[in-house]
Amino acid sequence: MSGRLAGKAALVVGAAGKDNMAQVIARRFAAEGAKVVVAGRNRAILDTLAEEIGGIAVECDFTDRVSIFAMVETTREALGGIDIAVNATGWGLLKPFLETTDDDFDRMYALQLRGPFQFAQALIPVMQDKGGSIIQVTSATASIMFHDHSAYMATKAGTDHMLRTIANEFGHLGIRVNSISPGVTETPMTAEAAAVPGLMDAFAKGYPLGRYGTSQDIAAGCVWLASDECFMTGETMQVNGGLTLRGNPTKDAIEASVAAAMTQQG
């Protein structure tokens, strides 16, 4: 098998949504020659993807320690080891800060900060003999602002920094740990927002390259981080067309853009 990930064993978590970011990453990894385990919460969707790419489906609840460790163990047994592990789970909660409940925050923390922590704890013993690449999908909003997104952004930023500590402590085992930061990305999750006239126009102006991202962009970044060609660790790679140079629109700017589009249509 040729390809930039030929012979590699890869685990991609968060792939239980049709055509979501993790699915696109898994397809690209398979196309580059990797053996791929896809994981997430919806068995039927995972099975369809696994069949398509010749991979294996494993159910996992990323808020549950036992489930995460079982997923990693199942993957190790199925593939004979793990060279590459990607976590692309997430919960895009938008809620005003003063209305965000402790329960919201706890759920966010469990998925977006404790999950990556437990995932790394499960992976390091598996990767310690041969090395490996751990990739966490975080977010441009870990470093730039967006309104009504505090719990999401705080846990993503926490994960970025936690990854640096893991990179620092386990680099000598050949384990590289990095995160990749998308901005607004065309995915099934954002399709609804994209259908609101004027909404995405407000975001597009924040991208120096003139377009927002696609899951293919993120998958390409993951291939680079996963491949033996990459000698980077402890970094947050911004794969968002320069969004962090400009920033997201304010709430007012988005509302104005939508209102203008509505008027034009009306």
Binding site: P208, L209, G213, T214, D217, A220, G221, V223, W224, F231, M232, T233, G234, E235, M237, Q238, V239, N240, G241, G242, T244, L245
Partner: peptide, 12 residues
């Protein structure tokens, strides 16, 4: 052309 990356410093 795959790198949707600009304005960044990549660490080696």
């Amino acid at each position: 052309d795959e790198a949707f990356v600009t304005g960044q410093r990549i660490d080696v």
